[in-house]
């Protein structure tokens, strides 16, 4: 078997006395579309926040392609090729699409000590291309993200992650608050990731969404993994029972 792209070993996390993660060990293979399901408070978000650098584990290791890594902040996570898409909080509504695509990673014409002049033309051109690459058609990179629909926003977020050549894309409840049509679009984006060889972790409350686009299901309850099966060997009923 090949080296897993991400491996966690015995991750623990306490939040002021609450044991939110109780020794989670998980191997994610390259190119896999993994669906992570579980009730509120099951530890899904905690696990994801650790991988994306918003929180740090209290115990345990994270390995990326076999190498142990230390993820201290979101920058570290992104540098390692892990991109996270949150249900709504990864875009600034009052900023344009092109600015949102490059937040925190702006291309600069020249710079001193990390500060410099934005290369706005490059930002515009590359964001148009990135958006087209995920098969999303938007009129202008200068439109405000706040003017887009929920599904389009998730599309831009996915385009951004793709543009930065992520190895692993974590989608945290990307279909929440979306209409049926928009949900179908987002699920389409996720399926597209697999074709492009990107590993994805899809988190959702909605089993139907997860079963629609993932090839492996991991269920969590009370901070532990309670089920881990290929999608073909399990069913919504079986997973629901475990939660």
């Amino acid at each position: 078997m090949s080296t897993p792209i991400i491996e966690t070993r015995n991750l623990h996390k306490w939040y002021s006395g609450v044991h939110a993660l109780k020794g989670v060990s998980l191997k994610i293979e390259k190119g896999q579309a993994l669906g992570l399901v579980g009730d509120n408070g099951a530890g899904k978000s905690t696990l994801i926040n650790i991988l994306s650098g918003l929180h740090r584990q209290d115990e345990g290791q994270i390995l990326l392609e076999g190498q142990e890594v230390d993820i201290r902040n979101p920058k570290d996570s992104m540098r390692l090729g892990i991109e996270t898409i949150y249900q709504y909080n990864s875009m600034v509504p009052l900023m344009t699409i092109s600015r949102n695509v490059f937040i925190g990673r702006e291309p600069l014409k020249w710079s001193i000590g990390g500060f410099g002049i934005l290369d706005e033309q490059k930002m515009r051109e590359e964001s148009v291309k990135a958006i087209a690459d995920v098969d999303l058609h938007l009129r202008s990179p200068d439109a405000l993200v706040g003017e887009l629909s929920g599904g389009q926003r998730q599309g831009v977020a996915i385009a951004r992650a793709m543009h930065f050549k992520s190895k692993v894309m974590i989608l945290d409840e990307p279909t929440n608050h979306l209409s049926v049509k928009e949900t179908a679009k987002v699920i389409g984006f996720v399926k597209g990731l697999k074709e492009q060889g990107v590993t994805s972790v899809f988190i959702s409350h909605n089993m139907h969404h997860v079963f629609a686009c993932c090839d492996r299901i991991v269920a969590m309850a009370l901070g532990q993994i309670v089920l881990d099966k290929p999608v073909s060997e399990t069913s919504i009923e079986e997973v629901s029972e475990k939660l």
């Binding site: 979101p74 909080n89 600034v92 900023m95 937040i103």
Partner: peptide, 14 residues
């Protein structure tokens, strides 16, 4: 602008 516009997004983007 990102910090003032939507702090969680700014933080999530590092």
């Amino acid at each position: 602008r990102a910090t003032g516009g939507f702090l969680p997004a700014a933080a999530a983007m590092g």
